[in-house]
């Protein structure tokens, strides 16, 4: 049974990863699960400088979902290299640093710096950030900006570069093709959906920044549809993310065309969810007499 997934030149041991922002830098979950069993760990976002994050409250539960506005709270590149890298570099699983920024330069210089001072398996670019040089427009909302950021990063590293797409766009396949054209090795689909909760007692938005990012089971069908469309628009691997909480939801992504997965919010609910999902994938392969994860997508009528 072949559970491996190839991202660029890297072979990831299995398709079940953990999503950026939900797994810290790995050590937080060390006592709760065997980190060797994870295919790939995507770190909390790292930015050039440390960021304190947003005002509170930062999270609120919604019906079958979680709305968050963390604000990329992180220790910055130097803090990452000093405090987080030693643990991550000792892990057996693949480790991708999620990188965020507000300009093309931010992404390129952060990746270049990390390549020299804290090299891991590769990078995932969080492009759901405002571009400060273009009036705060989301980088991920513009094919041109995604292409430019990806190109800049591609030029400074030989490691795999994954672009994490935002669903908050009109045509995600256009953005996906732009990332592929600029040299991305894979795409993560999707980041959180913009959402808002208003407290009817106070008549105010619960989150100080008004809106946040929605994750959890509520977004599963959105993510599956996005992976279905994106995987048909590009020829690089697509990593399915959004609402996976067990084997069934994970298999929906693989059937839709995902080559691999990331589990996010469900880690908070059940730290052993990654093991359950991997077992479910193994069972599914056996039941369908398949020998590789990559064959699952062929079962879905096009």
């Amino acid at each position: 049974m072949d559970l491996t997934v190839k991202i660029g030149d890297v072979v990831v041991s299995n398709p079940v990863g953990v999503a950026s922002g939900t797994f810290g830098y790995g050590s937080e979950y060390e006592q709760l699960i065997d980190l060797k069993s994870i295919g790939a760990l995507f770190t909390k976002a790292v930015t050039w400088e440390p960021r304190p994050g947003n005002r509170i409250p930062r999270i609120i539960e919604t019906t079958s979902g979680l709305l968050n506005s963390i604000g990329l709270a992180n220790v910055g590149r130097e803090g990452f290299a000093k405090e987080k890298y030693p643990f991550l570099s000792g892990l057996a699983c693949s480790t991708f640093v999620n990188v965020a920024g507000n300009t093309e330069d931010d992404y390129a210089r952060t990746v270049e710096w990390l390549d020299e001072h804290a090299p891991l398996t590769g990078y995932e670019l969080n492009v759901s950030c405002p571009n400060v040089k273009e009036g705060g427009l989301s980088i991920g909302g513009s094919a041109r900006m995604v292409e430019a950021v990806t190109q800049r990063v591609r030029a400074v590293t030989d490691k795999p570069v994954i672009v994490k797409l935002t669903p908050n766009v009109t045509d995600i396949t256009e953005i996906a093709r732009a990332a592929e054209a600029a040299g991305a090795d894979a795409l993560s689909a999707m980041n959180t959906l913009v959402g808002m909760v208003i407290d009817v007692d106070t008549c105010q938005s619960v989150l100080p920044g008004k809106t946040g990012g929605l994750s959890g089971p509520a977004v599963l069908p959105v993510g599956v549809a996005i992976v279905y469309r994106v995987s048909r628009a590009v020829s690089i691997p697509v990593i399915g993310i959004g609402g996976i909480e067990g084997p069934d939801s994970a298999l929906q992504y693989l059937l839709a065309g995902a080559s691999a997965l990331q589990i996010g919010t469900a880690n908070f609910v059940d730290p052993t969810v990654t093991d359950r999902v991997l077992d479910g994938i193994r069972n599914f392969l056996s039941q369908h007499n398949l020998t590789a994860v990559s064959e699952i997508a062929s079962l879905l009528d096009r």
Partner: peptide
């Protein structure tokens, strides 16, 4: 969220 220090 996580209660283990991961999600901030």
């Amino acid at each position: 969220g996580c209660a283990v220090g991961a999600c901030m």
